[in-house]
Design a protein around this nucleic acid. Structure first.
Lengths: 205, 205, 205, 205
DNA sequence: AACTAATCGAGACGGTACGTCCCGTCTTAGA
DNA sequence: TCTAAGACGGGACGTACCGTCTCGATTAGTT
């Protein structure tokens, strides 16, 4: 299955009449926007492809020409609309960046994006292709950021050496996803700060 | 399905009382067993209620009379067949019990039970009732065990005071569930031991 | 299939305590009465065996012990409760008896009994056993009465000879059943009288 | 199912207009044909909607989109496939046409079409909508033909005046349907001819 | 009066068909 | 030539009712 078929706009040099993105790009965005709004409001299961096509003012074929199924579509909606907003913030010291980043992520999890992420992670349990996509396009980039920060923190002397940084990353992300999926507790500022504090207690240089 | 024959009650001490579970109990178990075998072997999505009913030698209505949907059924299969096997082991010191328990849990996650837990946790993202059931019947009892152990460890002087034990529990379970769902790494003995080690580094008295 | 199992009351000589019919006979009548009331009021299809058993205050097994299915039960309800009421009336001349009998039959067809007869005749199209029962216990006895009357009318000189009396009977009953089933016209006194008149026009001696 | 290919339109006179019924029409016919074959061969009750859909190579929804239940479907199969074949024949005199028509109808009743008509008339006893449909689309058109013939016969002087022609029609059709449903006798040529003869005896001018 | 055997109501059971839903593909008419 | 609209094959769903079977309680007849 070709999971995500990115539109291949082949005529960038001569946009015949309209200026700006070609129509197909506008259609793509309309679909992604409709998807995001419907899914974040009413949930992944409750939304059908027909509803998405209807809301986007598009035929179902037009949707399936671009995404092979609902999960792939929601995956793109997440990556395109939400992804950029979780870019890693900057700060003087690495640990400060880490804190900012976790708090940012937590804020997203509380909002409508949380619904998308939960849906995708859930659906991925039944769909190996989606699981791979989700890992590669969502999980790994964010883990990479944290791993890098942790590495810098070691170099900066804020974190002791000898720590397994992969597992350290699990220790930071794991509890947040756990709460997202299980709902065993809020994902608020206090939680993230305490979590980070208790994490650092054991790893500070 | 082999029914229990009540006619050959050989227990001499209570002759006037029928022994052997009533038929309805045997039916229930047959359904749970069929569910567990099918779902752990081929996955939640791939299995239909008809297949379960067929394998259990039971009409579909008999299944629906007891469970309102597939998720509720699998939830019960987990609680009934798997739950008892993850009872908390005993050991001299609390930290030793904690280690044993996490390793035991990890071993289960690697086996066929992992499939059930992933399926249920995934399905729970779309079904609020199931989510509640899963929390109350699976998550909370196990968290309670860990919380208790951590409390004892503090009393025993193996863990420093002032730690938020709820969040500490998240720090222990979170990364394991995270790997279960995301598949970002194995859930083997090394992982659990390192995880526990890095956790304790920050909390030892 | 043993279609209709008539209860075989084997102790007519010594009803030990209660006077009158034994209980099993009372149960039988309660079931027949419940059947008649429900079916004539709401129709054959709309009524389930559970409803009949409930209304009769009886377990379903008790119904099935006596009748093999709903059609057999309704057949008995017809024969037992309605049959006697359509006995052939007496009159001086045969043609007068014929007229009275047809008018009587028509009156029954208009009432709640009509629903039972329609239901049974309809169900008989799908159930060969019921079809046979219906013919033998309902149709043929009434045809026999008409045939006999027609025979007497010939002897009495009111009907000419050389008429195929079987087909003559079809000519009398056919149009009435036709209207019952098709609803193409009322089955009132005028209809029956005109029908009989136009029939006799061709057959009078 | 062999679909009609619209691409090889070879008719030169109307090149811009697509020829060949649209797919939806072909589907409709495939379903009606499958229905007719199955029901006339094995009976109304024995056939399920799944079997019809399977034989027609069609999803069940496609059947239900066009017909609300099995009875409506069989009704259409009768009207579409069988109806035209019972058109009124021509003859010099009206009474001759009447005879021919009744014999034709009788022949149909003996064949596979008889099963459909019996099934529908039976089912109509439980379904008011079907009853109306059956009357309006099957019964009334054929009655109208007979009524017209009888009227002409009166004009031609072959039938006496003063006869209630509606009831006369009942007298002709009634006995035939009666035998069809009750099976009290064959519906052969002799029966129809005798029936007609005994009918005319009373109504000839 | 106590015991046994039969019978009952209640309703669970295996099974079959129903009619609905949504997926992902295919067709059609019109722009 | 492309698209919206939506029909289509497929397959699972959850429901209804059939006719059978189980169960504990009640009754009937016997000891």
């Amino acid at each position: 299955m070709q999971m995500i078929r990115r539109t291949s706009n082949l005529v960038p040099t001569a946009p015949h009449k309209k200026i700006g993105r070609p129509r197909s790009e506008a259609v793509r965005e309309a679909i992604l926007r409709a998807t995001f709004e419907l899914v974040s409001a009413r949930g992944f299961r409750a939304i059908t492809m027909d509803q998405i096509a209807l809301k986007a003012g598009v035929g179902k074929m037009t949707v399936y020409r671009r995404w092979s199924n609902k999960a792939a579509l929601v995956m793109d909606a997440l990556a395109q609309l939400v992804g950029p907003a979780t870019a890693f913030p900057s700060a003087a010291r690495s640990l400060e960046r880490l804190s900012k980043q976790l708090l940012l992520q937590a804020r997203f999890f509380r909002g409508p994006y949380g619904t998308l992420i939960r849906s995708l992670l859930a659906e991925a349990q039944f769909d190996e292709n989606l699981a791979r996509e989700f890992r590669e396009r969502w999980i790994i980039p964010r883990r990479a950021g944290v791993l890098e920060i942790l590495g810098h923190a070691v170099e900066e002397g804020d974190l002791k050496t000898g720590v397994d940084l992969e597992i350290a990353t699990d220790q930071l992300y794991g509890p947040i996803y756990y709460r997202l999926l299980i709902g065993s507790g809020k994902i608020d500022r206090t939680f993230v700060e305490t979590l980070l504090q208790q994490f650092l207690d054991g790893h500070k240089a």
